[in-house]
Amino acid sequence: LKGVVVAGGVLAGAVAVASFFLRNKRR
């Protein structure tokens, strides 16, 4: 169960970083 929580956190972080980079590329 702990691994699932960690994986979810990593996935959420990756999505946040990806969206951040996409926003920067638009400018």
Rank of each mutant, 00 (worst) to 15 (best):
L1R: 11
L1M: 02
L1I: 04
L1G: 05
L1H: 11
L1F: 12
L1N: 04
L1S: 08
L1Y: 02
K2D: 01
K2E: 01
K2P: 10
K2T: 15
K2R: 10
K2F: 09
K2V: 08
K2I: 07
G3E: 06
G3M: 15
G3A: 08
G3L: 13
G3I: 15
G3Y: 15
G3F: 12
G3C: 13
G3D: 06
G3Q: 12
V4I: 07
V4N: 07
V4Q: 09
V4G: 04
V4D: 02
V4R: 13
V4A: 14
V4T: 10
V5F: 08
V5S: 06
V5T: 12
V5R: 07
V5N: 03
V5P: 01
V6R: 12
V6T: 05
V6D: 02
V6H: 14
V6M: 11
V6E: 03
V6F: 02
V6Q: 06
V6N: 04
A7T: 13
A7H: 08
A7G: 09
A7Q: 07
A7I: 11
G8R: 03
G8L: 07
G8I: 13
G8T: 13
G8N: 06
G8E: 04
G8P: 04
G8C: 09
G8D: 03
G8W: 11
G9Q: 10
G9C: 08
G9S: 13
G9N: 05
G9D: 06
G9R: 06
G9W: 01
G9Y: 04
G9A: 08
V10Q: 03
V10S: 03
V10A: 11
V10W: 11
V10T: 06
V10P: 02
V10D: 01
V10M: 11
V10F: 15
V10Y: 02
L11Y: 05
L11A: 03
L11G: 01
L11P: 00
L11K: 01
L11H: 01
L11M: 13
L11S: 01
L11V: 14
L11F: 15
L11I: 05
L11D: 00
L11Q: 00
A12M: 13
A12G: 06
A12P: 02
A12K: 06
A12V: 09
A12T: 13
A12R: 08
A12C: 09
A12W: 08
A12I: 04
A12Y: 09
A12H: 05
A12S: 07
A12N: 03
G13L: 08
G13C: 09
G13T: 08
G13E: 05
G13Q: 09
G13Y: 02
G13R: 10
G13I: 07
G13S: 06
A14N: 01
A14T: 07
A14P: 01
A14H: 05
A14V: 15
A14D: 00
A14K: 03
A14M: 05
A14R: 05
V15Q: 02
V15G: 02
V15N: 00
V15W: 12
V15D: 00
V15L: 13
V15C: 10
V15T: 04
V15R: 05
A16L: 03
A16G: 05
A16N: 02
A16F: 09
A16D: 00
A16E: 02
V17N: 00
V17G: 01
V17K: 01
V17F: 14
V17W: 10
V17T: 03
V17L: 07
V17A: 14
A18F: 05
A18Y: 10
A18M: 15
A18N: 00
A18K: 02
A18S: 03
A18L: 14
A18H: 03
A18W: 12
A18R: 03
A18T: 11
A18V: 15
A18Q: 02
S19C: 14
S19A: 12
S19V: 13
S19E: 07
S19N: 14
S19Q: 12
S19Y: 09
S19W: 15
S19L: 12
F20C: 09
F20H: 04
F20S: 03
F20Y: 05
F20T: 04
F20V: 09
F20D: 00
F20E: 01
F20K: 03
F21T: 02
F21N: 00
F21Y: 08
F21W: 14
F21R: 05
F21K: 02
F21V: 10
F21E: 00
F21S: 01
F21P: 00
L22W: 05
L22T: 03
L22D: 01
L22M: 10
L22C: 05
L22Q: 02
L22H: 04
L22S: 03
L22V: 06
L22P: 00
L22I: 10
L22G: 02
R23T: 06
R23F: 14
R23S: 07
R23L: 13
R23I: 08
R23P: 01
R23D: 01
R23K: 05
R23W: 11
N24A: 12
N24G: 11
N24W: 08
N24K: 09
N24P: 03
N24L: 12
N24M: 15
N24H: 15
N24Y: 12
N24Q: 15
N24E: 04
N24V: 14
K25A: 12
K25N: 11
K25Y: 15
K25V: 14
K25W: 13
K25T: 14
K25R: 13
K25I: 13
K25Q: 08
K25L: 15
R26I: 09
R26V: 15
R26K: 11
R26W: 14
R26Q: 08
R26E: 10
R26H: 15
R26C: 14
R27Y: 14
R27T: 15
R27C: 04
R27W: 10
R27K: 12
R27E: 09
R27N: 13
R27L: 14
R27F: 00
